[in-house]
Amino acid sequence: MPQTTTQQPDSRAWILRMEGVDKTFGGTVHALSGMSLQVNQGDFISLLGPSGCGKSTALRLIADLLHPTRGRITWSGDHDVGDLGVVFQEPTLMPWATVAQNVWMPLRLRGKSYHAVRDDVLEALRLVGLEKFQTAYPRELSGGMKMRVSIARSMVTHPRLILMDEPFAALDEITRFRLNNDLLALKQKIGCTVIFVTHSVFESVFLSDRIVVMAARPGRVIRELAVDEPYPRDESFRTSPEYAAHCREASAALHAAMDQAA
């Protein structure tokens, strides 16, 4: 296990630290090079970059699906499997199970009977606005609704950190905007900490308070931008001059990243 637990006093409550993390595949493919990142309680961090910049590799390292070739990933305090919620690019629901059973799954794997956690499951579904669909099967839902189920599932364990790997990339723009708004509303309500992988400048600016811009070949962090606009943010933020300024800045950083890669 690369994840060791250390008790370090810190003025800000940090959750996770990556220190000089390298990941190479087969000795030649440098997927991630020297990535350092500190995730604090309540952060909404976007990893923004072109494809091949190691964003997904970074998430898989944090999720312990991969192990770093070099460097360390440290969780603050005791770390167990319930600390992490994950949303993939596809909804990744079990087609044979109802919506409620899908959301129940992370708790079921920890030995909780449905009866014991029914309220948690329904609460998670209520947060994403799908409490009426608990007995529906995934195939009966639209793409956006499936994604909401996936988000509900990631939150049902009240994780310390939620990883989202381009969750809205496959959705149409209207649905995507709606889900962006709803995700921020959710964040306000439950105060979750999120690392959000995206290749959309607009999405990253609208959602996050920190944007980590990454470049490809080798995957690495180029810049870290702060989006110091207060939450809650709503539709009016999308048309504000501050939003436009942040988008310009992030865009420029992304272009710089792509030039470096080319």
Partner: peptide, 22 residues
């Protein structure tokens, strides 16, 4: 599904749970 497998791993599913539920 591979993502579901990853999800089961992340949630610490045992071999038996993976077999039975997935």
């Amino acid at each position: 599904d591979h993502n579901l497998r990853d999800l089961f791993r992340i949630y610490g599913a045992t071999r038996w749970q993976r077999l039975r539920y997935l």
